[in-house]
Amino acid sequence: MYQSFQEIIEIEKNTGKSFWEIIRDNDCREMEITEEEAFLRMRGMYEAMQSADEAYEPNLTSTSGLVGGDGEKAANARRRGTMLCGSFLGLVMEKAIKMGESNACMKRIVAAPTAGSCGVLPAVFLSLEQDKGYSREEMVKALYVSAGIGGIIAQRASVSGAAGGCQAEIGAASAMAAGGVAFLLGGDTEAIAHAAALAMKNLLGLACDPVAGLVEVPCVKRNVIGAVNALTSADLSNAGIRSKIPPDEVFDAMRSVGRILPEDLKETGKGGLAATPTGIAFRENLKSF
């Protein structure tokens, strides 16, 4: 597992291999499998995301009653053309909510990197393939890039809301998706690293404050901001904009912020939105079930 973006940048310079190939080769070594087997394995992961998206049930609600049906509302608004963000971003928003709702309703999803942030990567990648015409092979390569970024974040910081707040879940997923999109836009490892850094900087310090301790409110809707943030960050990187703080230092800062966040804002369901009068009322009502 690679410890830094700088390490991968150096490998790219020395070997001429792209980010995704470097991560695939590492996967082959760790799993003791061939390149073909590794690629098929990652393709299977991507297709599981697609299957989860297709299996969304608009009439299904979570046991708590807090989640369900909003993905279909977003889809209807997109079809009517009433979203100011336009059709493509509308599609991304719709898919992000649908995947988050499916998770809350106990359907099969792909944790990327966690179940609570499972909507970010699929929303971005599936929408790009569907609307922008990227090939399945390109999407699998982009997923390798995202996996590599997730590995670096896990090594330098955390992908656990309980350890680092929601910056470690939605923030990490957004950074992973941003880097994958930067790759699809033709970016080299430097561009990929800065897209990930720009995405994380926007969500640095994000609290993890699940109402009633459930991965539902505000988790599902945060997948939307993570997905849209990934796209804007990739666009900035593609335009040549760079993070003034080096990418590896950004994720070191993420680790530091996670350590100093109060426990009430790290998945305990005690602070933030969970501590509002309405949040407390939801929690008390659920106790009666």
Rank of each mutant, 00 (worst) to 15 (best):
Q6T: 13
E10W: 03
N14F: 04
T15G: 08
K17N: 13
K17E: 14
S18R: 14
I22L: 13
R24P: 00
D27A: 11
M31Y: 11
E32F: 01
I33S: 03
E35Q: 11
F39T: 00
F39G: 00
F39S: 00
R43K: 15
G44W: 04
G44E: 07
M45V: 15
A48F: 08
A52N: 04
D53R: 09
A55E: 12
Y56V: 10
P58N: 06
N59Q: 11
T61E: 12
S64F: 07
G68H: 11
G69F: 09
G69T: 10
R78G: 06
T82Q: 12
C85Y: 05
S87H: 13
L89K: 14
L91D: 14
E94P: 01
K95A: 01
I97M: 12
N103S: 12
M106L: 14
K107G: 03
A111E: 11
A111S: 15
A111W: 04
P113F: 07
G116W: 02
C118N: 01
P122I: 05
P122M: 07
V124L: 05
L126T: 03
S127C: 05
K132G: 02
I149N: 12
I149R: 11
G151I: 05
R156F: 00
V159M: 13
A162C: 03
Q167R: 02
Q167S: 08
A172K: 03
S174W: 09
S174V: 06
A177T: 04
A177Y: 03
A178M: 07
G180V: 06
G180Q: 07
F183P: 00
G187Q: 09
T189K: 06
A191P: 00
I192N: 08
A195H: 05
A195Y: 10
L198K: 06
M200K: 00
N202Y: 03
L204D: 04
C208E: 01
D209W: 05
D209R: 01
A212K: 10
G213R: 09
G213H: 09
E216H: 07
E216V: 10
K221H: 02
V224F: 05
A227Y: 08
V228R: 01
N229S: 14
A234G: 10
N238V: 00
N238E: 07
A239E: 13
A239I: 01
R242F: 04
S243H: 09
K244I: 12
P246H: 06
E249F: 02
F251G: 11
D252V: 09
A253R: 12
V257P: 02
L261W: 01
P262C: 09
E263C: 04
E263A: 14
E263V: 14
D264V: 15
L265I: 07
T268G: 14
F282R: 05
N285V: 10
L286D: 07
S288G: 08
